[in-house]
Simulated scan of single mutants.
Amino acid sequence: MQNQDKVSLSIGDIVTATYKTGEYIGELTELSSPRGVVKILAVIKHPTQGDLHQLYEADVAMFHQRKALAYTEKALVPLSAIHPYSGSIPGYKESLQKAVQLEMEMLSRTGDWARRALEQLEELKKDYTF
């Protein structure tokens, strides 16, 4: 992981940003230490489903459903979670579809918690247009 103090970020840079439990590629549109605003262009990792305080527990009071940030949605992200990105930027819909699929494959191997999270992702897939 890069030391943020040694990385120079500028408005207009293409970056990766970790926001809550998702990871995204986006454009840095505002920079005001200790945070920056990132306009979402693609999804790398879909947000985690369930109760983050009781990870992998299926029988909890509130099993949270978390959507990925939308295309061009802006997120206020700590600078420590923003890093330069130099690769090609995949299309948003394709990246979202891939991120959902990867998350579902990982969850299919983790028991009851995974079953509940998969149910939430199936519901979210109905809302997404791929």
Rank of each mutant, 00 (worst) to 15 (best):
Y24D: 11
Y24W: 09
Y24T: 13
Y24Q: 14
G26N: 07
G26F: 06
G26H: 12
E27N: 11
E27V: 12
L28W: 10
L28E: 13
L28K: 12
L28Y: 10
L28M: 12
T29M: 10
T29F: 05
T29N: 05
T29C: 11
E30D: 12
L31S: 01
S32D: 13
S32A: 10
S32W: 11
S32E: 08
S32G: 02
S33D: 09
S33V: 04
S33H: 08
P34E: 04
P34C: 01
P34L: 07
P34M: 04
P34G: 11
P34H: 05
R35L: 04
R35F: 05
G36H: 09
G36L: 09
G36I: 07
V37N: 10
V37T: 14
V37K: 12
V38Y: 04
V38D: 04
I40P: 01
I40G: 04
I40S: 03
I40R: 01
I40M: 03
L41Y: 07
L41A: 03
L41F: 00
L41M: 12
L41G: 01
A42I: 01
A42S: 09
A42F: 06
V43P: 06
V43N: 08
V43Y: 04
V43E: 00
V43T: 10
V43S: 00
I44C: 00
I44S: 02
I44A: 03
I44D: 00
K45H: 05
K45G: 02
K45Q: 10
K45W: 00
H46G: 00
H46K: 00
P47E: 03
P47I: 05
P47R: 07
P47G: 05
P47L: 03
Q49W: 02
Q49M: 02
G50Q: 06
G50R: 02
G50S: 05
G50F: 04
G50H: 01
G50K: 03
G50E: 00
G50W: 02
D51I: 15
D51T: 14
D51R: 15
L52H: 08
L52P: 06
L52A: 09
L52Q: 14
L52M: 13
H53F: 12
H53D: 11
H53N: 15
H53G: 11
Q54P: 07
Q54G: 01
Q54T: 10
Q54F: 15
L55Y: 09
L55K: 11
L55A: 01
Y56H: 06
Y56C: 08
Y56A: 10
Y56P: 01
Y56E: 09
E57Q: 15
E57Y: 15
A58V: 14
D59L: 14
D59K: 15
V60C: 12
V60S: 13
V60E: 13
A61W: 12
A61T: 09
A61H: 11
A61K: 13
A61D: 12
A61Y: 08
M62Q: 10
M62F: 14
F63W: 02
F63M: 07
F63N: 02
F63Q: 02
F63A: 01
F63S: 01
H64D: 05
H64W: 06
Q65S: 15
Q65T: 15
Q65P: 07
Q65E: 15
R66M: 06
R66C: 00
R66L: 03
K67Q: 08
K67L: 07
K67V: 09
K67G: 08
K67S: 11
A68W: 10
A68V: 08
A68S: 11
A68R: 02
L69A: 15
L69V: 10
L69E: 11
A70T: 13
A70F: 12
